[in-house]
Deep mutational scan, measured.
Amino acid sequence: MQIFVKTLTGKTITLEVEPSDTIENVKAKIQDKEGIPPDQQRLIFAGKQLEDGRTLSDYNIQKDSTLHLVLR
């Protein structure tokens, strides 16, 4: 499925993911596309910070959802 990741600069990254993918996995995909190390990434969805060990389906993230990427 496709999800979107919006950065603070207003750029939107499109990712191909599975509901069973972990947040860690998603961060690795963002690193592949953007070169941002996962340890600098914070992903936010519906006002919640997403934890590495959980999956997209744990957070009820569905296709065409938009996550927000904050760098630390």
Rank of each mutant, 00 (worst) to 15 (best):
T12V: 05
E34Y: 05
N25S: 15
T7F: 12
L8W: 02
E34L: 06
G47F: 03
E16I: 13
D64S: 01
I3F: 02
T12Q: 07
R54Y: 11
R54P: 15
N25H: 06
D32S: 10
P38F: 14
R72S: 14
Q2V: 11
L56G: 00
Q2K: 07
S20L: 12
A46I: 05
V70P: 02
V26A: 13
K11H: 04
Y59S: 03
P38V: 10
R42Q: 15
K33A: 12
K6L: 10
Q40N: 06
I3P: 00
A28D: 15
Q41W: 13
Y59Q: 12
T66E: 05
V5N: 00
Q31G: 06
S20Y: 09
L8N: 04
N60L: 08
I36V: 06
T66V: 06
V5F: 10
R42W: 15
N60H: 05
V70W: 10
D32L: 06
I3L: 07
T9M: 15
R54T: 12
Q2A: 11
K27S: 11
P19A: 12
R72I: 13
R72P: 15
K29Y: 10
Q2H: 12
K48M: 15
G53P: 08
T66K: 01
R42M: 12
P19L: 02
M1Q: 08
T14S: 10
T12S: 07
L67P: 01
F4Q: 05
I44E: 14
A46S: 13
G47H: 04
R72W: 12
I61V: 11
I23Q: 04
S57Y: 04
D64Q: 02
G35N: 13
D21S: 05
T22E: 05
S65Q: 05
L69A: 14
G35F: 09
K27W: 12
E34H: 10
P19I: 13
Y59G: 01
S20N: 09
S65V: 14
S57E: 10
D64Y: 07
T14E: 10
L8H: 15
F45I: 03
Q2T: 14
K29F: 03
I3A: 02
R72A: 12
T66I: 12
S57D: 08
R42I: 07
I23M: 12
M1N: 11
R54E: 12
D52H: 09
G10V: 08
G47Q: 03
G35S: 11
L69E: 02
T55G: 11
S65T: 04
T55W: 08
E24G: 07
S65F: 04
T9R: 05
P38N: 15
L69Y: 04
E24F: 06
I23G: 04
G53F: 14
D32N: 03
K6A: 12
L8V: 09
E34I: 05
D21I: 09
E16L: 09
D58M: 06
G10L: 11
Q40P: 05
D39G: 12
S65E: 12
K33T: 11
A46G: 13
E18R: 05
L56S: 01
L43M: 05
S65W: 05
D58F: 15
D21E: 08
T9Q: 04
D21T: 08
D52S: 04
Q41Y: 09
D39W: 04
I3T: 02
P19H: 10
I61L: 08
Q62E: 11
T14R: 06
R54F: 08
G47E: 15
D32E: 08
A28W: 09
F45P: 00
L71K: 14
T9G: 08
R42G: 13
T66A: 15
E16V: 09
I23F: 06
I30N: 01
V5T: 02
L43R: 00
I44F: 06
L71Y: 15
Q62A: 11
F4W: 07
E51K: 02
K48F: 13
H68A: 14
P19T: 13
Q2L: 10
N25I: 06
K63T: 09
L71A: 11
L69K: 00
I36F: 14
L56Q: 00
H68W: 01
T22H: 11
K11Y: 03
F45A: 11
I36E: 05
H68M: 13
D64F: 13
Q62H: 13
Q49D: 12
K11R: 09
Q41K: 03
N60I: 04
E24T: 09
H68R: 03
E18Q: 03
D58R: 02
Q62K: 05
K63W: 10
G47T: 11
K27I: 13
Q62W: 10
T55I: 04
I13W: 02
R54I: 13
T7Q: 05
L56K: 00
Q40R: 03
S57F: 08
D58I: 03
P38T: 10
N60F: 02
L69F: 09
G53D: 02
G35P: 15
L15H: 01
Q2S: 09
V26S: 01
E34V: 03
I13D: 01
T7D: 15
T9P: 09
A46M: 11
Y59E: 15
D52P: 12
K63S: 08
P37S: 11
K11G: 10
D32R: 11
V26G: 00
L56N: 01
L50S: 01
K63A: 04
Q62S: 04
D64T: 02
Q40A: 08
T14L: 02
D21L: 07
L56P: 01
Q41M: 12
V26D: 00
K33M: 08
K33P: 07
K6G: 09
K63D: 15
H68P: 01
I44S: 10
Q41N: 09
V5W: 01
E51D: 10
T14Y: 14
I44T: 15
T66F: 03
L56Y: 01
T12D: 03
Q49Y: 08
V5P: 00
K27V: 11
V26K: 00
V5L: 09
I3E: 00
I13Q: 06
